[in-house]
Amino acid sequence: MRIDYFLVSETLKERIVACEMHGHGIELEGFYGSDHCPVTLELSPSSNSQNEDPFVTKPLSYFFSLLSGC
């Protein structure tokens, strides 16, 4: 059986709530399917104000093209 992983960045590490493997043991008890038991990762909602940012920022080329009138 192959091992499946979740890889997270350092910043996401703080938001890990749970990571579960479905089915266990050589007989895959608790799960019927392929030889890959699914794994699930639960992350907490981001407290980063960036996600709550009501603003959008357009790239500079957008503004420069406005100024050029094209």
């Binding site: 009501p54 603003f55 790239p59």
Partner: peptide
């Protein structure tokens, strides 16, 4: 230094398309 401003999301819809 040039920096693009942050624009309120709501205003976006009322703006004419370039």
């Amino acid at each position: 230094f040039y920096l693009a401003p942050k624009i309120e999301e709501d205003e976006e819809d009322t703006k004419p398309q370039v």
